[in-house]
């Protein structure tokens, strides 16, 4: 039972993914993420640490470019 629960949890976990081609590296996502999961790679684009991200979607809602999408983690 416990095992089955764990599987569903892992399967339903979402992750934020940045389209680095469109990202303008403004840093809005860094400020909006309460988990500190985002950093800017050398001033070029944002990167989300998949291990920390809880898939809350705050960053994708505030990103002015709209280049952050949430995907099911099982795809990773």
């Amino acid at each position: 039972m416990a095992f089955a629960m764990e599987v569903t949890l892992v399967k339903s976990k979402k992750n934020a993914i940045v389209d680095k081609k469109r990202c303008v590296a403004c840093g809005e996502c860094i400020i909006s993420c309460r988990k500190n999961a985002v950093s800017i790679n050398a001033g070029c684009f944002a990167v989300v640490d998949a291990n920390i991200c809880v898939g809350c979607g705050l960053c994708s809602r505030s990103c002015p470019v709209g280049c952050i999408t949430l995907i099911e983690q099982e795809e990773v």
Binding site: V24, E28, A42, G43, P64
Partner: peptide
């Protein structure tokens, strides 16, 4: 009209600094 920081998507300073960073990288 749009998102709070929509200006940052085309702010000349933002574009210039990102451009410089990309060249450096």
């Amino acid at each position: 009209l749009y998102k709070p920081r929509s200006w940052c998507t085309f702010c000349p300073m933002g574009t210039m600094t990102q451009g410089l960073c990309k060249i450096k990288q």
